[in-house]
Nucleic acid binder design. Sequence first.
RNA 1: GGGGUGGUAGUUAAGUUGGUUAUAACGCCGGCCUGUCACGCCGGAGGCCGCGGGUUCAAGUCCCGUCCACCCCGCCA
Length: 600
Amino acid sequence: MSNLLERGRSHTCNDLTGADEGKKVVLFGWVDSRRDHGGCVFVDLRDRFGKTQVVFDPQVEQKAHGLAGDLRNEYCIGIEGVVKSRGGNKNPKLHTGEIEVHATALDIFNKSEPPPFLIQDDIDTNEEKRLEFRYLDLRRPQLQKNFIMRHKAAQIVRRHLDSHGFLEIETPFLVKYTPGGARNFLVPHRVYPGKFYALAESPQLFKQLFMVAGFDRYFQIVRCFRDEDGRLDRQPEFTQIDIEMSFPTQDRIFEIVEGLVTTVWKECLGVEIKKPFARMEFDESMRRFGNDKPDVRFGMEHTDLTELVKQHDGGGVPLFADTVKNPANLIKALVVPASANLSRTEADKLEELCKGMGSKGLARAKLDEAGNWTQSPLAKTISEGMRSAINQATGAKPGDLLLFQFGRASLVHTVMANLRLHLGKKLGLIRDKEWAFLWVVNPPLFEYDEDTKTWAAAHHAFTKPVDADLQHIETDPGKVKCFRYDLVLNGFEIAGGSVRLHDPIVQGKVFKALGISAEEAQQKFGFLLQALKYGAPPHGGIALGFDRLNMLLTGTDSLRDVVAYPKTQKGVDLMTDAPNEVSAKQLEELHVRAIIPAKA
RNA sequence: GGGGUGGUAGUUAAGUUGGUUAUAACGCCGGCCUGUCACGCCGGAGGCCGCGGGUUCAAGUCCCGUCCACCCCGCCA
């Protein structure tokens, strides 16, 4: 060993250019590839900054060349050498391609077993292996780029919010369990038998109390915990940019967030996003797209046929006639253009997709040259009047295929929203270079729960209702809209928030509509209700999903590519094997007994 | 909890209507090679075909169950 570690590196593997010719340098890194010519040995040395070609030439240094023969991929080494121009033999693929380093010394810091997969981008490796050897996966340049970008975004967020007067203050993770919302992870307490903390699913109530405290503007880049099943864009622990401000209007909050997001996009990607962002009413989003996070980068919108079918008194289609008898039901259609040229088999596959989401099937009708319906059981009985009315309402043209869903509104929306997305991707309709930011605003304050036959808070119980709708709160709660908003980007919900209720009288009405008694409210949210009595300022805020933001920013198609140590869909960490069993003694200390369900 | 897709060498994949010794590429090991840059050439090793049952003369292939991963529904105020 020539003690290179003590001397320290002089440059990173992305630094050296023709201007450095003749310099004696020390580089540290990993062997990215080795090309042994028996005489010269070439090594591409990699660190997180880039790569540099190192040449071991026996005529330059016999000893180093001898050692270099033992090098293998992913050995961690240090080299000392002299920078030489490559003259006409440059490597345009490398930033350091003008030069190479002729090694005069080599230290092997650590050997490496052959890695289970190649440390290269664009290598398709199975997800399980990647997660098991996460530290090797993270060594790949693309993932390193993602986390460098994530770091940069976090710094921009801090700087931007700081410059707008927001204070970064931390809130507890170990909190009181409050009902409603996501399932919580629970933490048993050693000192208090039978009592538990919950891991915070968000700092929601604490940030509101900051406003009562007079901090005026707060933010935090904060971890949140929710015990729910995973998705492409959902992890059990995830990071929010949490924001709350006093004396807001909805527009003021939007301005802050738009400023923040456009700054991030500009500084991270060099992309100029137009402000203000587009806005859409929640109801309109549901009607046109079937969900509250529409990807508006393509058309293929839904047509709601419920009223039309009612007007035609079922139009000779018994299934439709039955559907519209129930006011909670819906009939929707979308048009697959003739150009898609969907085969019978492909349409059958779509039907299977629908069934997988709980739908009974997928009614279809193809338009012939005259606009008549073919290849459809609906065609046999439908009245000519309703058929042409549907053709007109949907804009369907000869050769187009109509797809229908009918039944319970929530199911129809879900199925049709996913069907639209599926077709959009499959048919290549999505304009994938576009950044489609969209505010979805004014959803209903309450949602009717079909199972329990009660009204529930659609967001949380502390969202401010639209003043003009307050008159309906007792008679028709479903009509009451509220100051809640989601920011949607390319079909992903990247932020959600609301203007809060700070008026105890209106708060009482909301609780009443939710069927929550004063005692119950006191027991569950007492500390917040109490706080609101001490001159709580009008306040409101928002939380941005920092992981999702990064997923879109880096153009990756999974949250796992921007979370350093992600968990599987079922919440397992394949690298550490968490969660794991603990000893009987530990359980006893926590006053907890494990009940393992018997396997059939 | 439900639907779908996948699981074959270290990795990525191929494997026909069930039929001899399960292929290939990369990686790995050995040898050769002084200008490669995903070096090249020659040779070699490497397999519980996820796991368990079943059908069959015969199963990677067919059937049933089960586990794991991914995508979706439910769930995510």
